[in-house]
């Protein structure tokens, strides 16, 4: 998708003489954004005058940046914990569904897996989080709320990961399975040694995207009382009564992490596709 977009765009910029109508619209839109910023006083000296003072108030004074650091820790802890649960649950579910399709006699398990995926993909993660915390774990008093969040996000992501895995396995030519079966490997062995390794190579980029999405999804954890990165920004807002700076700082931190992860995926993709050209 991404490459397509850029190619199209490049073609539009280079193949035509002068600017196309699309570019004029884009330019108009840019001008309009500039006008919006201008009209909200963004370019006035007053807006920048006390930028440093407010920055100091928001992040430096009394080591307030530590609130963001603690929030980041909680966000990363929840994301990594949920990733592990998501991978495990997703793998189990996809194996059940693929095995059922492959002829294993597990109709009940398959039905269960299907229902699980339907329900967890069909409801918002935030609603699930609230249900986990206030309905299912209503009486769990001394349990750290972060563990409940990890469970909620992990099980939710498990449903998506299951679909990613299943897609990956089904993308492998059935001939591979037939060939390895005819060479005398059992169903399980040909799955393990022939199909899954190839499927994994196909799904790793999608898996990473799922986890990047989850990193951002954890920003609703504030609803059940977890001071994650987003909530830490809101806590600074309440402390200094400043609205935009803490939010923008939080956005920048998320963006930096996502950019880093995207970079890792790209490297991984290159590494996985070596010798495939």
């Amino acid at each position: 998708m991404r490459n397509n977009f850029f190619n199209k765009h490049d073609a539009c910029l280079t193949s035509r003489q002068g600017a196309g109508r699309g570019d004029i619209v884009l330019g108009l839109f840019g001008l309009f954004l500039l006008y919006l910023l201008y009209s909200s006083g963004f370019f006035t000296a007053a807006a920048w005058q006390d930028f440093n003072r407010r920055f100091y108030q928001n992040f430096i004074k009394d080591q307030r940046y530590m609130m963001l650091v603690d929030g980041l820790k909680a966000t990363l802890f929840m994301t990594s914990g949920a990733t592990l649960i998501g991978l495990t649950v997703g793998l189990i579910l996809s194996v059940i569904r693929v095995a059922y399709k492959g002829g294993a006699k597990i109709p009940l398990l398959n039905k269960l897996a299907n229902t699980y995926i339907t329900v967890l993909r069909g409801t918002p993660a935030m609603v699930q989080l609230l249900i986990w915390n206030f309905t299912i774990f209503a009486s769990a008093r001394n349990l750290n709320t972060q563990y409940i969040a990890i469970l909620a996000f992990g099980l939710n992501s498990g449903a998506y990961v299951a679909e990613i895995f299943r897609g990956g396995i089904e993308s492998i030519d059935p001939g591979q399975m037939e060939a390895s079966r005819s060479l005398g490997l059992s169903y399980g062995d040909s799955m393990r040694f022939v199909v899954l390794p190839q499927a994994l190579r196909n799904v790793i980029p999608m898996l990473f995207n799922e986890f990047i999405a989850m990193l951002k999804e954890t920003s609703v954890a504030g609803y059940i009382g977890i001071d994650d990165l987003t909530r830490a920004g809101q806590n600074i807002q309440a402390l200094t009564l400043e609205h935009s700076q803490p939010l923008i700082m939080v956005a920048i931190i998320y963006l930096v992490i996502v950019l880093f992860l995207t970079h890792v995926v790209r490297k991984l993709e290159e590494w996985l596709s070596r010798g495939r050209r």
Binding site: D62, R64, M66, D70, D227, N235, A238, L239
Partner: peptide
């Protein structure tokens, strides 16, 4: 504030 406010941790 002044009834409740988070400061640091």
């Amino acid at each position: 504030a002044p009834y409740e406010l988070k400061v640091g941790s």
